[in-house]
Amino acid sequence: MGMYKNIGYLFLAFLLYALNAGFFRNFEFFGVLPNLLLLLLVYTALEDEDYFFLGFGFFTGLVLDFATQVFVGSFALGFLFAALLLRQISQNIISLERNWKFLPLMLGVAQLVVYAWIFFLNGLAHRFGHAQVFFEAKYLLNRFGWEFLYNLALMYPVWKLAEIPKVLQVKFSGRIK
């Protein structure tokens, strides 16, 4: 079931989180930072053959929930639904090959779904006094474009890094699964 590949993805998520929190913290543009875990989610949703990407997306979203102090589940559910939607789109609506034209669209869809969940769930929790911070729609919309562009600029290097677990899988088990 691709054990080496899955361990590779988990290790890569750890590395990308550390890069996001430590390295890119000093390189903000127009008040936004990139979301490298979202880029990894897009890769696993489109390229992974089995269903590991669902649990993986949920877990990485949960880590972001704890790191950003939004209501627990905002990023987790956002990542989960985004992963599911991307897989459905790529398998049933658009027959995707490794074509860079569709990847910005997929990234935009994933980011939109995540933002929508953050706004909805966090807003609902804040309404009942369970969330520490509240996001206005205007604030999220203002940062959406810049964050999309920043993520897009980093998509290629993250994509190349995300292929390493597959290489590991082939090297250690002799097949991709």
Partner: peptide, 17 residues
């Protein structure tokens, strides 16, 4: 969850700082 990646985060922050 936040303590686990702390050494890597600090290393990245130190390098970029």
């Amino acid at each position: 969850f936040l303590k686990m990646p702390e050494p890597a985060v600090k290393a990245g922050a130190y390098a970029t700082g």
